[in-house]
Simulated scan of single mutants.
Amino acid sequence: MRVLVSTRSLAKPPTGIGHYTAETVRALRQLPGLQVREFPARWVRPLARYRERHLDWWLGALQPPPPGLSGQRVTHSLVSRLERFFLRQHSKQSWFTPARNDVYLEPNHELMPTSLPTVVVVYDLSVLRFPQWHPEGRVAHHRAFFETLAERGQSLTVVTISEAIRQEAIQSLGLPPDRVITGCCAPRTLMRPGLPSADAPQMARLGLTPGYFLHVGTLEPRKNLALLVRAWSGLDSAIRLAHPLVLAGGQGWGDEAFQDALRQAPAGIHHLGYVDEADIPALYRCALSLVMPTHYEGFGMPVIEMRAVGGAVLTSLDPAVREIAGDDTPGIAADDQAGWTAALDRAAADDNWLAPQRSAGPAWAGRFTWRRGAEAVRDACRVAIVGTSARSGPVAA
């Protein structure tokens, strides 16, 4: 079976979708009977990478810009036109026809026009269910994307990254259950247990002392960080001093409530911003607990990575997060501030409370592998091909 994978997300700095795409392509190549091709080819990516990583240099080189055009518009115009030209060349070479490939895998919310059987990865439906949590441009883009799913008919199959999102996709998008397949993500290979003494250099570099409460993720409304800040602020001062709150993740958007809570909070909250990937395992291992009071997730990568290193986790009752966290993980309602304060207090005071969860974590996380996720994608490709064959005749497999 010849699988054409859209890897445009790999041309940009790593994101969640980029990591998923890279790991899935790697795992698909290890499955027997598959021939995996990437679109665009690797030699096209430098154009997009140049645009993303060297925009400041271009802006400086193009000053002053032509009348009526900003430097940013000139940069995007020149580089984007070259990028689109090479993408069109790929299409002209019949990459998206049965003569070259049997099925098209799109993990990036940007469907290419094609008659090929298509597999789409859906990570979550937060943009549709909770548009107030997202920028307007993102909402419009994703709504248009989801509307096109229905237009592909029996030639399209969906892969979700959790069973919870599979059920949502069936109900919210009206997709046939037999054409929605549950896959998964997996912790990065660096995520494994280790001795605290070995993490001392990373702790020194980050300016931290082991024993903090940790949240990992972009600072955005659905993460429910305003409640987390207030819940931590409700702890006794001695507990806050011994167990500060560490936030690791980029600045997001539209969370004025979080900023207000942060301004009113006592000292002891540290926002690290983006953390180098090499330091993340130590960041997890040295935390007293990962705290995730999220309103909504599609999977919950920090949860499975914390469990992989043998750490403790406290989560909300979001269905996808609970599915990934496991039954031995304490769950607190996302809107229960007093409940979160009590859980943080108990985690700090009772060393034995979360000990069973820590010891069982690596084995639990081992159930989530990229091979398992790739096998789900392979199965979805087969379903998409069969659906198309029934409608339009045989497709080579």
Rank of each mutant, 00 (worst) to 15 (best):
A231L: 15
S289V: 10
V395L: 12
Y296F: 15
A325I: 06
W340D: 00
E83Y: 08
L47I: 04
L190W: 10
Y284W: 15
A343N: 05
V5D: 05
Q251H: 06
M306D: 00
D335I: 10
L206G: 09
R358I: 10
A267G: 13
L247G: 08
T388W: 06
L55G: 12
Q171W: 04
A312E: 08
D260W: 01
P40V: 07
M306P: 01
A396F: 02
S197E: 13
L247M: 15
I181Y: 02
R285E: 04
Q35H: 06
M1A: 00
Q63A: 14
R138W: 02
S359Q: 13
R129E: 08
T218V: 10
G71I: 11
E38Y: 04
Y104H: 06
R26I: 05
E147A: 14
E151Y: 00
V377L: 09
T15Q: 11
E323D: 14
L125D: 06
S115L: 15
H109T: 14
V180K: 03
V139C: 08
P201Q: 05
A343C: 01
L4R: 08
G310L: 06
Y274F: 15
R143L: 01
R179E: 00
V74D: 11
L272C: 08
G18P: 10
E110I: 01
G18V: 07
R322M: 12
G18D: 06
M112D: 08
G174H: 00
R322N: 14
Q167E: 15
A363C: 00
L354P: 09
T182Y: 03
I239G: 10
L47P: 01
G268P: 06
L55I: 11
G249F: 08
A150C: 00
F146Y: 04
S197Q: 13
G273A: 12
F130Y: 11
C286Q: 15
A238T: 13
Y50G: 12
A312T: 15
R51L: 05
P193G: 14
I165A: 01
M203N: 03
P14K: 14
G339A: 13
W340R: 11
